[in-house]
């Protein structure tokens, strides 16, 4: 990153609708504190992997991560003020995107590798043993590589994660729902806070106004790629479950069922 020679104003001033909500600095501090701890797979990994053993390790880790994700989401400012139905809906839509963004963050300094956990690291080639997973590994590695190119900062990473969570369902200030307008306004305001925080984080990097604009665009454009790879991953996991390659249970089963055609 260029040296911070100039103190340039942020690209966009914090939105007025958020006054007197929380400053972007405070918001980022809160979501940084919400970050889940590092977890370990804690399995005796026998290599070479078989299709079943790799899928089992991946799903075991995912199930552990999901539990921590719920605790993380509850610490995102404004999340628990949403209705329980909205909280459930948001988490069920975005859980795999959140897991994948976390994976990309852990892997950003390890080109060609996916760091699922400190004790579970896979190279691209190790995905050969699972039918259809190499395509997904390639997409994950490509997105990770992009974050590496952009030199993604921790403050930006936590903002993107919060953005994925709150952006899982479309918020619309003008829609009227059965529960009334205030519910949707709350979600919109929370999302505005995340945008303000991300803009603030970018403004600290000493970039020109144009570079700040581009960076905001580059980071948010990656969210659609994350959504795409999450959809692919969801289909893949569903296929593996239907073929009985892997037993999916507990919280992971609930979250997977919400995204498959068999769900009500």
């Amino acid at each position: 990153l260029p040296p911070m020679e100039l103190s340039l104003p942020p690209l966009v001033q914090p939105s007025q609708s958020n006054q007197p909500f929380m400053s972007p600095e405070e918001f980022i501090s809160r979501i940084m504190e919400a970050e889940p701890p590092e977890i370990y797979l804690m399995e005796d990994l026998k290599k070479p992997f078989t299709q079943a053993s790799m899928m089992m390790s991946l799903t075991n880790l995912a199930d552990k991560e999901l539990v921590l994700m719920i605790s993380w989401a509850k610490k995102i400012p404004g999340f628990v003020e949403l209705s329980l139905a909205d909280q459930i809906h948001l988490l069920k839509c975005c859980w795999l995107e959140i897991l994948m963004l976390g994976l990309m963050w852990r892997s950003v300094d390890h080109p060609g590798k996916l760091i699922f956990s400190p004790d579970f690291k896979l190279s691209r080639e190790e995905g050969q043993c699972v039918e259809g997973i190499m395509e997904i590994f390639d997409m994950l590695l490509a997105a990770t590589s992009r974050f590496r190119e952009l030199k993604l900062q921790r403050e930006e990473y936590v903002c993107l994660k919060a953005m994925i969570l709150l952006n899982s369902i479309l918020c619309n200030d003008n829609c009227s729902t059965a529960a009334g307008l205030p519910k949707k306004n709350k979600l919109c305001k929370n999302l505005d806070s995340v945008i303000d925080a991300l803009v603030w984080a970018i403004s600290k990097l000493g970039l020109s106004t144009q570079q700040q604009t581009l960076r905001l665009g580059h980071l948010t454009m990656l969210l659609s790629h994350i959504r795409h790879v999450s959809n692919k991953g969801m289909d893949h996991l569903s296929t593996m479950k239907k073929k009985n390659v892997v037993l999916v249970y507990n919280l992971l089963l609930e979250m997977l069922d919400a995204n498959t055609s068999s769900s009500s």
């Binding site: 539990v67 719920i70 605790s71 329980l84 069920k92 507990n250 919280l251 609930e254 979250m255």
Partner: peptide
């Protein structure tokens, strides 16, 4: 939604 609901509605330790 049993497990998800349980995690959302229990207080953090």
């Amino acid at each position: 939604n049993t497990k998800l609901l349980q995690l959302l509605t229990t207080k953090p330790e």
